[in-house]
Design a protein around this nucleic acid. Structure first.
Lengths: 223, 223
DNA sequence: GCATAATTCCCAAAATGTGCGAATTTTGAA
DNA sequence: TTCAAAATTCGCACATTTTGGGAATTATGC
């Protein structure tokens, strides 16, 4: 665009609080984003409920982990809250505001697998190539088989898919037969040891607790 | 506006991620704000430095408090980070994303008082009425006198100004003779006891530590 | 103090958003 | 399942808004 327009637009973004001038360093994102993110956090009824359950999950499994809450936004799954264990836990790159594709990571996979078939088919057709590359499936049938397996188990465990040496165990938060979120436990392979099955059960139970508590209150389901 | 325009605009905001449709409940703020807030947190060099110092401040004073980091944004002071003590601390309404006017609360006052005289005069003239109401000053001279007192002390203590029964103790983070932030300790009157002077010194020291560490690194000062 | 760069201002042309009514889809009740 | 009412999208002529070039002004660095 022209210089005039650039100056005008940047000025307007500053006035609106979406950009913020920095002395001698141009501009950074403005304070409006901080305010709006707080409004989101405040309005999100899922977070306070999940937050408590997530701390309980760490108590019941290991403090050498991070519990993560993810919401689905269109064709991505975004982390909206995390609770760190009190023990030495691995550095998580997956924190509030990070979006992942639907095909990578335990949280994504568990959310994907619990979508209704209609949505699932649409996503499959939209990104057949990506799915092949990521999941190594040959066709819709094989994909559907894995989805069915995940639904039956109600839990997904992945290793080194989001970050090297890290294991993710995820279960779906389901309200009115709709996945509205995924909850997962992220830990180093060493912290997992042979507790895989026990931890899976704990994550499933935590997800169910959240689901039940949400169902009892006012239901707000993301479309 | 017309219905058509309303539909179109909402659609576009959804596509851009600034709104998010909710089944049966209209719309909520969209995921873009969460993403942009994360980018802000990531790009903010102040937060990791201050975060560590703030935890140290709680260790050195009381865990029955919350440490708060505030940045100035035009004519407001906004909380950008908080660290809760491990003890039973008061519920803080002042958390990331909350903006306060320049005249209420310890953090605001300490930032206000350390602005350069030019900016100070402009603000005084812009909002003489508010200042009279909030601070009870008669005129510029009295206002200036209080500002000078705060500058000399290098610390502000306020009681029940942001929330009832809550005390705030704030000191400025100064880089290149510019206030770029304020750090404060928020606690209940009971948790303060007679430790006022000691805590004030601790907050001043914490603010100075942050200032020094920032000054050593690359300097990014908000305009 | 001066030259150069950065920024704002002004205005006609271009383009984008606007609102109307019609067409289509969704919803809720029978 | 049917049907009417409401909700939503569509298409289009028109008007407001945005755009970019260049002049004017202001900041910056040497």
């Amino acid at each position: 665009m022209s210089q005039s327009s650039a100056y005008r637009d940047v000025q307007e973004l500053c006035r609106a609080g979406f950009l913020d001038p920095v002395l001698g360093a141009g501009y950074v994102l403005g304070p409006a984003f901080i305010e709006y993110d707080r409004l989101l956090r405040q309005g999100d009824t899922l977070i306070p409920i999940a937050s408590r359950v997530m701390r309980g999950l760490l108590d019941g499994t290991t403090q050498r982990a991070t519990a993560i809450l993810c919401r689905r936004y269109r064709d991505t799954v975004m982390c909206v809250h995390q609770e760190h264990g009190t023990g030495p836990h691995p550095i998580t790159t997956y924190e509030r505001g990070v979006a992942m594709p639907l095909f990578a990571g335990a949280s994504s996979k568990v959310v994907l697998a619990h979508l209704e078939d209609r949505a699932l088919k649409r996503i499959y057709l939209d990104s057949e190539d990506t799915i092949r590359a990521r999941l190594g499936h040959g066709d819709w049938k094989a994909f559907k088989a894995e989805v069915r397996a995940i639904r039956k188990a109600g839990v997904v465990e992945t290793a080194s898919e989001v970050a090297a040496g890290r294991v993710g165990i995820a279960a779906p938060v389901v309200v009115n037969k709709q996945v509205i979120a995924g909850i997962s436990l992220v830990l180093g392979e060493d912290a997992l040891g042979s507790a895989s099955t026990a931890f899976q059960q704990a994550v499933i139970a935590a997800a169910r607790t959240i689901s039940d508590e949400i169902a009892q209150g006012d239901t707000w389901v993301a479309r």
